[in-house]
Amino acid sequence: MTITVPRPKLNWRERLYLPAIASGLAITLKHFKNMLFGRTKVTMQYPEQKWDSHLPDYYRGAPALVRDSGGRVRCVACQLCEFICPPRAIKIIPGEIPPSDRFAKVEKFPQEFDIDMIRCIYCGMCEEVCPEQAIFLRKDYAITGFTRADMVHHKEKLLEIGGVMHGVVLKWNEKK
């Protein structure tokens, strides 16, 4: 069904449009003036001003792998983050820990762990899904590089960003 919306009837002043134009000009001039005299609050001037010290704890920056206080890379290459990752930024090649290793009990570790930071959308699903508390979104946000390859964070880089995480569950102990 067609509905005809009637145009509003305008009186002669409105039809002249000039008062409306004048009030519009007054509004824009007011904004111009306020900005000129520094009365308008403007956005943060990023490279000079940074918010780093104010970043909240829940800030979602670059995902990174962490070690626990025992020095173990917490990731066991379960690949759940690879599975959940919406943009498929994560690629893991699992490996087996040799029996002679200090952490042989864990059996599995990520031989390669790549996060393509061009693809990453900082959603934090990897952190949420991780059953081992091994991947966390840290506060690094200025991820840059000159090539596509530069933008892929390999395991070493991820561990470097991640550092040591205290206060996580140490479940690969004897009790298990």
Binding site: V76, C78, V106, E107, K108, P131, E132, K171, K176
Partner: peptide, 11 residues
């Protein structure tokens, strides 16, 4: 039963 589902192939 160990809680090692993250590394278990059956998971």
């Amino acid at each position: 039963h160990p809680l090692d589902c993250p590394i278990c192939d059956q998971a």
